[in-house]
Design a protein around this nucleic acid. Structure first.
Length: 253
DNA sequence: AAGAGGTTCAACCGCTATGTT
DNA sequence: AAACATAGCGGTTGAACCTCT
């Protein structure tokens, strides 16, 4: 006997969300908070399944989301985290405030992967590609000549966790944490991020990335402007009061 | 200008983990 | 302990968009 489907397939709408649907979902979540996604579509008057609503909210409508491409620092962090965690996108996303696992996964597959390959780094193992090639045959790629080759993992106990091994270590997540913590001291960037999660520069919003002024993490109220400006939303509709509501809601969980 | 091929990313699917009864 | 419900995760898909010829 299989599980019940997450929703009644009949009469459930699929495909891109309309502005009207977004509005309904936002209004509902801001009023009632995030609870029981299965019930959300019915209560919000949406012909979607709960799963779809949750995805839409977490990946697109959440007010604390940053928008736009990942900047260099974020990209570097994703690479470092991927080297340690593999394809655990949600865990990686948890370390990048305002970014979603879906966004990071997409960015990895479309940008970072290619970048690494171009640099002669295997995006799966984070090891130089030529190592693999020389083991199996003639090298097709060579190590990058630039000093920018900095994705090599810091040595731990000599055994490098392979990123793509989708099966986590036996006693994950303890081992995950151990792995991460072991590497913090060896990596200034990681040190910065892991050192104190609460006052992490990415989180407090005051931290500026070294490259450009534009790459600073915007305040999330700024992020929300796209929503406030959203064709059908007046500021009265959502109101800044609702931000507090959202925060209270998320605090409750 | 057009259409073929490539790229991007929002959304879906199926599975697993976790919580509840 | 078992069965079920729900949330969350990661892989995949496909439509829209972009670039090249």
């Amino acid at each position: 006997m299989g599980r019940q489907p997450c929703c009644d397939k009949l009469g459930v709408k699929k495909g891109p969300w309309t502005a009207e649907e977004d509005k309904k979902l936002i209004n509902f979540i801001l009023t009632n908070g995030q609870c029981c996604w299965r019930a959300v579509p019915k209560l919000a008057g949406l012909l979607r399944c709960g799963k779809s609503c949750r995805l839409r909210w977490t990946n697109y409508l959440r007010p604390d989301l940053k928008r736009g491409l990942l900047n260099e620092a974020e990209e570097q962090l994703v690479i470092d985290l991927h080297a340690r965690l593999g394809n655990r996108w949600s865990k990686i996303a948890a370390r990048l405030p305002g970014r979603t696992d879906n966004e990071i996964k997409n960015h990895w597959n479309t940008h970072i992967k290619k970048k690494l390959i171009k640099m002669g780094i295997d995006p799966v193992t984070h090891q130089p590609l030529h190592k693999k090639a020389s083991q199996g045959g003639s090298p097709s790629t060579s190590l990058p000549e630039s000093d920018d080759y900095r994705f090599q993992l810091p040595e731990t106990d000599g055994s490098v966790p392979t990123a793509e091994s989708s099966s986590p270590p036996e006693n994950f997540p303890n081992e995950e944490l151990q792995l991460l913590e072991n590497n913090v001291d060896n990596d200034p960037l990681m040190n910065c991020f892991w050192g104190d999660e609460v006052s992490s520069p990415l989180i407090d919003g005051s931290w500026k990335f070294p490259s450009t002024e534009d790459s600073r993490i915007p305040l999330w109220e700024e992020n929300y402007s796209w929503l406030v400006d959203y064709q059908e939303f007046g500021i009265e509709d959502l109101g800044y009061g609702c931000f507090e509501t959202t925060m209270e809601i998320s605090d409750r969980h």
